[in-house]
Design a protein around this nucleic acid. Structure first.
Lengths: 147, 147
DNA sequence: ATAACATGGTTGACATGTCATCCTCAAGAG
DNA sequence: CTCTTGAGGATGACATGTCAACCATGTTAT
């Protein structure tokens, strides 16, 4: 048995797993962006601002919670600021930058939340069996611990 | 019960599923790109050229098999051609363009194949239980059939 | 034949991601 | 105090993705 190359079934599993994610995730993101004009990144940022910081967060904290590096976040915030979704203010107490959601940002988020929820239900949750739930949970645990 | 917003567990499932994919898939892609300089798109294109067309494919067929639109593929091929991985030639028999893998492209693919296989084993296949296999297969079937 | 339409591809503009580099400011080490 | 070091960000260059417009060439209807 060849240790290197994947056999047909192994390749199939990989391709099904990848294809399923891209299909489903793409549907959810597309439904949101078509209905609200927000991208996945936009939504993640706005959502964290209100969930974790009551509308404002330090830039570095935001980057950590998104699992983005500081450069990526900086670029994205620049674009979002230009669209009026957030503002950046220097911190007074310490070094760093405070990111705050604007009224327009809050409005966009409020509009997006139900769309996202229903899309996740329609394209993802509704397709899951109880077995799938177990599988997803356990697998996520396992890969999180990997090197 | 609120039909719109997701409850805590539903949100957890979505986030675990999404997080697991991005982590695992990212590890595989990163391992390949670090070892061979090929991106995910590069690899998919080169692999299909040899698997489905013995080294050459019509551009539109390639786009279909990648599930990419023609624009995306056109841009990507332009960059790959510049790096010497493929060449484009007008078809003589009919309208359209023939994409051919070059020697350099074949060499890059040969180098990448074992790296990709071992990365998929290490980060993905090795983490799967028999239950996971069933779950992945059945779920992929279900979502493929969705609207 | 010619007008309408579909197919196969390219292009430009812009959004998103990644990487390396640079800048500023703070905390310690000498 | 000066020198190094690291944290927090910004920036420029370039790769990747998306969308709409464009162009050329076949096909079909009238």
């Amino acid at each position: 048995m060849d240790k290197n190359e994947l056999n047909e079934e192994e390749l199939q599993i990989w391709n099904m797993w990848k294809g399923n994610f891209k299909r489903t995730f793409g549907r959810v993101v597309k439904e949101m962006s078509e209905h609200t004009g927000l991208s996945e990144g936009d939504f993640g940022i706005l959502d964290r601002l209100v969930q974790f910081g009551d509308g404002k967060l330090r830039q570095q904290e935001l980057a950590d919670s998104m699992d983005w590096d500081k450069s990526r976040l900086s670029h994205h915030l620049t674009r979002m600021e230009k669209r009026g979704l957030v503002v950046r203010k220097p911190l007074t107490t310490e070094r760093g930058v405070q990111v705050e959601i604007t009224l327009a940002g809050q409005a966009a988020l409020d509009e997006a939340l139900p769309v996202v929820s229903s899309a996740i239900r329609k394209y993802f949750l509704s397709q899951l069996t109880p077995q799938d739930l177990e599988s997803i949970t356990a697998l996520a645990e396992r890969t999180k611990k990997q090197s």
